[in-house]
């Protein structure tokens, strides 16, 4: 187990450098005139331009720029945004609200998906099963760039049930609508996988044994079948985290939540290369760590899996 974790951590280092390199290259290719983008409509004097170019190594080659960036990163310096703020400070500001939003979305999505998945598996072919099938297809077909503004317009503005935007210190209630939108990204697949997995497990021999033991139907399903059925679902939730992160960029932008996604969205439009790379690098690390945790959880759920 320990050796497995060490090996995975070493793999993560490679993946991390690979990922940051790709992100760095993409932002580099995207940059047209970041200084003008930074200044907006105002003209920039030649001396300002020279000073800023020098400061951000903008006239250096791509590899040199990457080298400078990595040197900073390895000494614990995430760099400075083109706006002049320390990226680590911006991250510290943006982080809490995004964690809250993402966790809320995951919990909502997983709870609904697992419960509805189990029920539609038990009553497969019934009304509930068919209704959830259609609902999941609709949700799957809706891209978040449509779903988010639509939900904001209908539930936030027209009906006024939820606040249409949220601040940095948003309560869970303020974040509920964006979290629902974000969760809907992954809820459909999670529900379908739960359903399939439960249907498969209901046919298993151990279910017959559990019934022969005179256990109640509820116990057979929620204790014996569910634990086995959750194994693939847990893996999926880990992978879904990546989807949630990209979804958060759109959701936070639309609901004006000053989190990580919001900052990335702004950084992309203002061609703020250091900011994009800095924030995305942190997201990459989180994604890698969560997937390691999911794999370890996998072993906890299924004792037949042992890591060497």
């Amino acid at each position: 187990m320990f050796r497995y974790i060490v090996r995975r951590l070493l793999q993560m280092v490679l993946t991390f450098f690979g990922a940051t390199f790709v992100v760095f290259a993409l932002t580099f290719a995207n940059q047209d005139d970041p200084l003008q983008a930074l200044a907006g409509e105002r003209p920039i004097t030649e001396s300002q331009r020279l000073a800023l170019t020098e400061r951000y190594h903008l006239n250096e080659s791509f590899l040199t720029q990457y080298w400078y960036y990595m040197k900073g990163l390895l000494t614990g310096d995430l760099g400075t945004s083109l706006t002049g703020q320390k990226i680590s400070a911006m991250l510290a500001n943006a982080w809490p609200v995004t964690v809250k939003l993402a966790l809320l979305a995951i919990v909502i999505a997983a709870t609904i998906a697992v419960t509805a998945g189990v029920y539609s598996a038990i009553k497969r072919g019934g009304l509930f099963d068919n209704v959830t099938l259609i609902a999941t297809l609709v949700v799957l077909a809706m891209p978040i760039v449509v779903l988010a503004p639509l939900a904001q317009l209908i539930f936030g503005i027209k009906l006024g049930w939820f606040p249409p935007t949220a601040t940095r210190d948003a309560s869970l209630w303020d974040l509920l609508l964006p979290a629902l939108v974000l969760g809907s990204l992954v809820i459909a697949t999670e529900l379908r996988v739960t359903r399939t997995s439960v249907v498969e497990n209901l046919r298993a021999d151990y279910v017959r044994t559990a019934r022969a033991k005179g256990l109640t139907r509820r116990r057979v399903i929620w204790v014996h079948v569910l634990r086995n059925s959750l194994i693939p679902v847990v893996t999926l939730i880990g992978v879904d985290l990546g989807g949630l992160m990209s979804g958060a960029i759109v959701t936070e932008k639309i609901f004006n939540i000053p989190g990580v996604g919001f900052n990335i969205a702004r950084a992309i439009t203002t061609e703020d290369g250091p900011l994009v790379v800095g924030f995305v690098s942190v997201l990459v690390i989180i994604f890698l760590v969560v997937n390691l945790l999911v794999d370890l959880l996998y072993a906890a759920l299924d004792p037949r899996i042992r890591y060497e």
Binding site: A204, D205, Y206, R208, T209, A210, R211, A212, K213, G214, L215, T216, H224, R227, N228, I231, L301, D302, P303, R304
Partner: peptide, 25 residues
């Protein structure tokens, strides 16, 4: 009927590996 199972009439199955739940001790 449920209470009759295991209490009064019990059953053992052919393949104990698949008949036992793999994820519980």
């Amino acid at each position: 009927r449920r209470k009759v199972r295991a209490n009064r009439i019990a059953m053992i199955f052919q393949d104990a590996l698949s008949a036992l739940n793999p994820v519980y001790t």
